[in-house]
């Protein structure tokens, strides 16, 4: 009896998931559809007669953009960690004056719409000549992840037992040694979570890319897709193939690190 009820729920769960993921399936399906079948009515539900033209186009035209996105993503991870991890340690364990004020500012910072930040950055970059540069984009993208990173590190590092810190001090470790040899290794999971989100957000960013890097020699993949849509609306298999390839990091990270993803989403919003 209970067994049958459980199977019924699994079936329902599979149905809901399939419904939810239908657009993702459709993206995949369209990416393999022949250009001549693109306007078939009704559309082909399965890629019976698949073509890899779309993917060939990705490798011909989008490889440099994928590379740029990778550089921007990794640069953003690095910048975020370098700023957020020590700051989290300081806020959690060293408590400088004004620590509460800074935590509050970080919460407020997360509420600022990125279109506003984009305008501010644009105005600054125009003067400095930083428009269309990769590192300009890395800095702008990091503003999405840094406040989140600091708050996550602070929350986690507050929970590190004081005895552990004290033991390090007894062994003669200074603040920096304690941070490097005790705090950081213990906070490995937080480092992974912050890195993961910093990378995904930079990889997915469209607003900063389309404002600060739109005429750059090196554009990220999101802008590559956007320009594709603008240029040739008939080649939806190529557009969707690019979209599939651009989704790979997200899918890979979800498979490898689902625990950290769910943890990160919750950490930003709910305590405990």
């Amino acid at each position: 009896m209970t067994r049958r009820r459980t199977w019924w729920k699994t079936a329902l769960g599979v149905f809901f998931t399939a419904l939810m993921l239908f657009p993702v399936y459709w993206m995949f399906n369209v990416s393999l559809t022949q250009t001549s079948d693109m306007r078939a009515d009704p559309p082909n539900w399965f890629p019976w007669n698949p073509t890899f033209e779309g993917y060939a186009d990705v490798f011909d035209q989008q490889l440099p953009n994928l590379m740029t996105s990778l550089i921007v993503g990794l640069g953003c991870v690095l910048l975020t960690l370098v700023i957020a991890a020590p700051a989290g340690y300081s806020l959690a364990k060293l408590r400088p004056r004004g620590a509460n004020g800074i935590s509050f500012l970080l919460l407020v910072a997360q509420m600022i719409p990125s279109v506003v930040m984009a305008m501010g950055f644009y105005a600054i970059y125009v003067r400095l000549g930083w428009l269309n540069s990769v590192w300009g984009l890395i800095i702008a993208d990091s503003t999405i992840a840094v406040p989140f990173g600091v708050l996550l590190f602070t929350a986690f590092m507050s929970g590190i037992p004081q005895e552990l810190m004290h033991a390090a001090k007894v062994d003669g470790a200074g603040t920096w040694r304690t941070f490097r040899s005790v705090v950081l290794p213990v906070s490995r999971n937080s480092v992974l979570t912050v890195s993961l989100f910093a990378f995904l957000w930079a990889w997915s960013d469209f607003i900063f890319a389309s404002t600060l890097d739109r005429n750059g020699d090196m554009i990220p993949i999101t802008l590559g897709i956007y320009n594709y849509i603008g240029n040739n609306t008939t080649q939806w298999n190529s557009i969707m193939a690019t979209a599939v390839v651009a989704s790979i990091p997200a899918a890979a990270l979800l498979v490898v690190a689902q625990r950290y993803v769910a943890g990160g989403v919750t950490a930003g919003a709910v305590k405990d």
């Binding site: 939810m20 469209f206 979209a243 997200a250 979800l254």
Partner: peptide, 12 residues
């Protein structure tokens, strides 16, 4: 698997 839509780049 329900997380997938949230992780995909918005432009995708």
């Amino acid at each position: 698997m329900f997380l997938i839509p949230w992780l995909l780049p918005l432009i995708v």
